[in-house]
Design a protein around this nucleic acid. Structure first.
Length: 543
RNA sequence: GGCCCGUUGGUCAAGCGGUUAAGACAUCACCCUUUCACGGUGGUAACAUGGGUUCGAUUCCCGUACGGGUCACCA
């Protein structure tokens, strides 16, 4: 077989010599030890927690080592492409504070562009042509049906499935056959002529998994699809080499195809990058664990967390606690320190998959939200409400001073005495509702209507917004004793039968009448914020 | 099914041949308290399993079980 002739036939176009690409995309001038990492999503428009998980690891390692994080778009599969997906992915990652240095739509250096694989077709062709010329790649005219039939036979014979060795029909096809097929205009793919020996196993050092045994690849994998676009495997090799990636951190689902990638790097004469295959985030599905899936877990998409109003910082903190086991302790010790000061290490990443724990995320969210200053909280709530809130909720921001007051005095935001009432912005807006709207009663009264009316009227008769907290509560106690409730909890507990209830029952009636709910922050404070007129009106309405 | 990876409380996890086997979340009890939230104190709860190696194995080796990943012209 005349490979030179075949290469010219397959790729009539003259491409620059491969050395030209090496010079066009030179080694990056970075400090020793600096890692170049990347995120390479395919534009399906869907990005979930698992993607963020990997993204944070890549970002931390690149930036902590003084390196670079870039964004490449793997749009080689037309079937999966969704319009506007790239923008959606970038927006989602930006929301969670993933800072790229360069890449698609990032606006940094374009020295290693283009960033979309579809725009890199010529580069791939130049390399494939060279491979054909060297006899290391060849055209294959098998149809999908033929390949499916082959798979069936192999499965029936309990052999390894795939296109390899004696099953690689076009691997050593005669020249006439190849040209006949070409002349007939048959569609074809280009395959790698693998030189691997499946009997040969070797140890590969993975940055996360440690030493793993891998078997040499002997599959003549497709490197160029019939539409002239490379498969992931080939694009990975060419792009990560030319973009000078030093460390590839990706999901462990890629570990199985590592032998292919290694052979590709080697036959192309590229220096292999380091690899770290991290475990996927898992989720309980009935009684068993399984990795997060785009299709099955829409509630795990990043947009879901935005809609719910989880604070991006909290999500990031949670991801980091899963990513590096000692992060949680560090963050507990230095809650004020910026996350970037934590010594993130790839070696501290877990080898086994972690189960996503919503309880834990919620706890972290409450804590982080309670640490926000009132102004930060206001800004956070506003941003969320303007995008996802109801019209009513948007209206809460008409008087920001009032909302700020409610947040500070009542919810204890930004103060010393912190409450942890809120998990999400969505929930916070619901909790804040009674500051703005007449209470829709959510919780039921426990005392009967008659007593209730008596309590409320009695309270109203002496209520004054000018009273301080002590005086106010003393008056509530008076109402209690007047109506047969214990003014002191101590007395009540000592002799349950002697009273109709305690002052807490009286307070509950007042609380529900003014806010609609049995559980709220300090009632006196709430009344101070609402103002006398409003309180009186609400209580009257309740009577 | 073949190949690869993993297995410490319900969950995330420290541990790297000798420990009363950390810590966090969840859970339970109590304290604080006009409710809730916060905070405090304490409790329940774990080395998958069988063999080795060793004076001694959670830790090292082998098998078994269980869980996960992967076997495309998808990434």
């Amino acid at each position: 077989m005349d490979f030179e002739k075949l290469a010219a036939r397959l790729f009539p176009k003259e491409y620059p010599a491969l050395e030209w690409y090496e010079e066009r995309y030179p080694l990056r001038a970075l400090e020793k030890g600096a890692e170049v990492t990347r995120l390479a999503p395919s534009p399906t428009g869907f990005i979930h927690l698992g993607n963020l998980f990997v993204a944070i690891a890549n970002e931390r390692i690149a930036h902590e080592s003084g390196g670079v994080l870039y964004l490449r778009i793997e749009d080689t599969d037309l079937k999966r492409k969704v319009d506007g997906a790239v923008e959606a992915v970038i927006a989602a990652l930006k929301y969670f504070d993933i800072q790229f240095d360069e890449g698609a739509e990032i606006g940094g250096s374009d020295a290693y562009a283009p960033w979309y694989q579809r725009q890199r077709a010529e580069i791939y062709h130049a390399y494939v042509k060279e491979l054909v010329r060297r006899g290391r790649a060849y055209p294959c005219f098998c149809t999908e049906e033929e390949l499916a039939a082959l798979r069936e036979v192999q499965t029936a014979n309990k052999e390894i499935t795939g296109y390899y060795g004696k099953y690689a029909k076009w691997r050593d096809a005669r020249e006439e056959e190849v040209y006949a097929a070409l002349d007939a205009g048959k569609p074809y793919v280009i395959r790698l002529r693998s030189m691997g020996d499946p009997a040969h196993k070797f140890t590969f050092h993975d940055e996360i998994k440690g030493d793993v045994t891998v078997t040499e690849n002997d599959q003549d994998v497709v490197i160029l699809k019939s539409d002239g676009i490379p498969t992931y495997h080939f694009a990975h090799a060419v792009d990560d080499h030319l973009m000078r990636t030093t460390l590839v951190i990706r999901g462990e689902e890629w570990l199985a195809s590592l032998p292919i990638h290694l052979e590709l790097f080697d036959t192309l004469g590229f220096r292999r990058p380091k690899y770290g295959h991290n475990c996927s985030l898992m989720k309980m599905d009935g009684a068993s664990k399984r990795k997060l899936s785009k299709r099955k877990d829409p509630e795990l998409s990043l947009s879901f967390y935005r809609q719910e109003g989880y604070h991006p910082y909290a999500v990031k903190v949670y991801m980091l606690t899963l990513l590096n086991s000692d992060f949680e302790e560090w963050h507990l010790k230095f809650p004020e320190k910026p996350l970037t000061e934590f010594k993130f290490r790839i070696s501290k990443m877990s080898k086994s998959g972690a189960l996503f724990d919503l309880d834990k995320l919620n706890d972290i969210s409450k804590t982080e939200l309670s640490r926000l200053s009132a102004e930060e909280m206001l800004a956070f709530l506003k941003e969320w409400a303007m995008e996802f809130g109801t019209e009513e909720e948007k209206g809460y921001f008409a008087d920001e001073g009032y909302l700020l007051k409610a947040l500070t005095l009542c919810m204890g935001i930004g103060g010393k005495k912190r409450r942890k009432d809120f998990i999400t912005a969505k929930q916070a807006m619901e909790e804040l509702r009674y500051f703005f709207a007449a209470p829709a009663r959510r919780d039921e009264y426990r005392v009967d209507g008659e007593t209730r009316a008596a309590i409320l009227s009695e309270f109203l008769s002496s209520y004054s917004a000018a009273d301080d907290a002590q005086v106010w509560f003393a008056k509530v106690k008076e109402v209690a004793s007047k109506l047969g409730f214990a003014a002191e909890m101590r007395d009540y507990k000592a002799d349950l039968a002697a009273y109709k209830g305690s002052v807490s029952d009286v307070a509950e009636v007042l609380r529900i009448a003014t806010t609609g709910r049995a559980n709220t922050p300090d009632l006196w404070t709430i009344m101070q914020i609402l103002g006398e007129e409003c309180v009186v009106a609400r209580i009257k309405a309740a009577i």
